[in-house]
């Protein structure tokens, strides 16, 4: 069953997930998205432009974070609006992986438009990497 507006409360946590990101996943995202900026796969290049190392595409982080919302809503087409600011880069080590912790809570409920605003806290090593990450989800009353 999909969630309904009536069963939600502002502040309620609705979903939580940890997503692992390694260099292979970034290469896969580069191919899927067509964004081949070398800062996302070439350590030497990333350091030359002043980064601490290879960083994830901001759009990878944004795309991965909203997966908890589409799963929870049980319908990827229910997300009618999704926005974020990119607060900090996600440095992806090699060898190893970065752990991206996503927590989704109800930020607002609007009965008139049949939508709930789901706020996403997206954290790597204790620091928020996305700011004001908000997905507007259309739900049945």
């Amino acid at each position: 069953m999909s969630p309904t507006l009536a069963e939600l409360e502002v502040g309620q946590e609705v979903a939580r997930r940890t997503i692992e990101v390694d260099r292979a996943r970034l290469v896969r995202y580069a191919g899927a998205s067509g964004d081949f900026n070398p800062i996302h796969w070439n350590e030497r290049f990333a350091r030359e432009v002043g980064l601490p190392g290879v960083i994830a595409h901001g759009m990878w982080t944004m795309g991965a974070a909203v997966g908890v919302v589409t799963e929870w809503a049980r319908d990827p087409g229910a997300v009618v609006d999704y926005q974020t600011r990119f607060a900090r880069p996600v440095v992806v080590p090699d060898p190893g992986a970065a752990q991206v912790e996503v927590t989704a809570t109800v930020g607002a409920i609007d009965a008139e438009t049949s939508t709930a605003r789901i706020d996403l806290a997206v954290v790597v090593e204790g620091q928020r990497v996305l700011a004001k990450a908000q997905a507007l989800v259309r739900l049945a009353a």
């Binding site: 899927a32 795309g63 049980r74 087409g77």
Partner: peptide, 17 residues
């Protein structure tokens, strides 16, 4: 196939993708 690639790359596991 492009939808599948992007969904898999972003760990978006909903079956409708």
């Amino acid at each position: 196939e492009k939808i599948r690639e992007l969904a898999e790359a972003t760990a978006s596991t909903h079956p409708a993708h």
